[in-house]
Amino acid sequence: MFTLCLPTGRVLDEAVEVLQELDIPTTKLKERGRSLVVQEEGFRFLLAKPMDVPVYVHYGIADMALAGSDVIWETGASLVELVDTGRGSCRIVLAGPRKIANRFLGHESQVMGLRVATKYPRIAEEYFADRGIQVEFVHLHGSIEMAPRLGLSDCIVDIVQTGSTLKANALSVIAEIAPVSLKFVSSRKSLQLAWDAIEEIIGKFSTSSKKAGEKNGEAI
């Protein structure tokens, strides 16, 4: 029995599509109702908040997972990144109103002390610390884009897909921090103790991406 952790919310549909492409049974998963633990054939699926998915893998509760690269980075979980599914593509960016964006074109001293709203405090802290820029962080859990508009922050670090929400809030991208996509990961223990099964699954990634004629990053 393998335990696979999946993120709830918008990205769940894409995760289920990935599983279908890998011939992993998903019938009960689609008819789960409010269940957070679903069992089907040789798999047990755990449904968790996206930010919690890497944590379940880190502590060995789940053998494998589909997790966004943003939450893998943010949680710092120790796990093995096996395949980039190419799904759920978006970017983590630094964004702000035009006048703030202009300040980033100049010397670092122009941006010292800015207040940055984000739901990714670890990523934001690493980004600014690596550049020697001291800023103040406001940790929010959602609707980050409205923070500059309401005066809560000067700029934001957040994920962006199409950019339309940024535009609606009069924000523009100041810097790209990292691309984000849904990754197939395993725990370090399961990589060693269940390698044959994991290898079989990731072999199917190669097949399914070849079938689709896509180049989503080579499977291991």
Binding site: E81, V83, D84, K183, G217, I220
Partner: peptide
């Protein structure tokens, strides 16, 4: 242990 990044770099 970012094997997908390892393969992407190789390519």
């Amino acid at each position: 242990r970012r094997y997908e990044a390892y393969f992407a770099s190789l390519a």
